[in-house]
Design a protein around this nucleic acid. Structure first.
Lengths: 239, 239
DNA sequence: CGAATAATTGAAAGCATTCAAAGTGGGTGG
DNA sequence: CCACCCACTTTGAATGCTTTCAATTATTCG
């Protein structure tokens, strides 16, 4: 058993790290310890090109990861929710920026220490391997979405992805929380925020989804959303 | 030092594995060994959903990795060249298909054995971590390309990516080999093969590139290609 | 309550696609 | 060796999906 904080040993687990109080704990002396940080919406965890000096675990809130072109066009490459790691990788610099969406609580680890500990611990390395592989599978799915799905198909795939990530067994009627703005969804799916607005309005009108409170959405017709995501037209959805 | 084939210890190195002859070697008895396989163009290494029973290293040739929608639309998520690993990951099933482009020679490893050996070897695990992280960074770049670059910008980014991968110091005048068909490039960049053809024709007409033999291309104007990839218009390239 | 940010909706424009057809090249078999 | 065939590439024209531009409404926050 590694003498490491639970937040490391349970990478990817939603409930991990919440009781982790290694800072100042004698067990962690000279080893890995994690500190806390609270960020307001819009604040950066790090920016593309920054030295990878720290890695993070989201405790509460949501973080957007993105890359930008010279011209200012932004591509969001992922959203990170509670329990997820941010900033993993062997590189010396971050390849993308990470920014809080709304108020966010984080656990912070020093990358140098973390890497040194991990480098000799197969258990941790396997966790890292799994975590990065999970991100990779998601990135592949994103490429499929952006590159080959229609705008409506992308939107449907996004809603189903969020639902799946929420852990809710597909087909449930639970309310999904969409903490990000339309512009974020647009920059994730390769669309514009106007198109996202129109698509959500259409989905609502057609009864595919229903609004639920401030940022809430309920999926009312999984089969049709799935069909859309799979590339089927669903007779002139423009209605 | 791990008692493992060079092809494992040098993941990502172009020249690795070429002299690896562990099959039948007493040193590898009961341990990891790799076999050879030769594939013709169009043959599959594995298909999406297949059990991940084997992993591969490309010796010669090129492999395309892709996902498909029900409707047949295909998104290529990466090309794999000599020296690169295919099929890594902790999952029980492959999340995408892998298919040879033209004649291809491979090294084949049994996943179960490989995983068992790797799971206790920090040196190998770190290599896997690096390999998957590299793929992840590429997938993020692909998302940026598909989602936020214009067709011309995507094409320029693709050419520069191939050049960078070839190892040629950017700015050289060496000939790039494009072993894949236009349809492959199109399915990688989220375009159609007609658009790829038009774009390459335009780049040639404008002197950005020059043909060189059957599948060869020479980049003649890196600065302009870079500018295009960065999102700059370059005055109505339609000429 | 007022300013600023975000979302919605409409109308027009554009970029890439789709549909269509001709051209090219390599491989095979007579 | 040449003709034929097939797959890929190229080019043209028209369509259309999404974007862009613009204006209004809603919401947040000081």
């Amino acid at each position: 058993m590694s003498a490491l904080p639970p937040c490391i040993l349970h990478i990817g687990s939603d409930t991990a790290c919440y009781g982790c109080e290694y800072l100042g704990d004698p067990r962690s002396a000279g080893r890995l310890s994690c500190t806390r940080r609270r960020l307001d919406g819009g604040q950066f965890l790090f920016m593309q090109g920054d030295a990878r000096s720290q890695i993070f675990v989201v405790k509460t809130g949501t973080v957007r990861l993105f890359k930008m072109l010279d011209t200012g066009k932004r591509q969001i490459i992922g959203f990170k929710f509670a329990g997820e790691f941010i900033g993993l990788g062997p590189d010396a610099k971050h390849g993308y920026s990470a920014q809080a969406i709304g108020e966010t609580e984080l656990r912070v680890l020093q990358a140098a220490v973390f890497d040194a500990v991990a480098a000799n611990d197969p258990q941790i390395l396997w966790k890292l391997y799994e975590a990065v592989a999970t991100d990779l599978a998601r990135a592949h799915e994103l490429a499929l979405t952006i590159g080959r799905r229609s705008a409506a198909g992308s939107m449907a795939a996004f809603l189903l992805e969020i639902e799946a990530h929420t852990g809710a067994h597909a087909g449930s009627t639970a309310t999904l929380s969409l903490p990000m703005r339309h512009a974020d969804i647009a920059d994730y799916l390769g669309l514009t925020h106007e198109t996202v607005s129109r698509l959500l309005a259409t989905f609502r009108r057609r009864g595919l989804i229903a609004a639920s409170g401030r940022n809430g959405i309920v999926l009312k017709h999984h089969a049709l959303l799935r069909a859309l995501a799979d590339g089927h037209p669903i007779g002139a959805l423009a209605g």
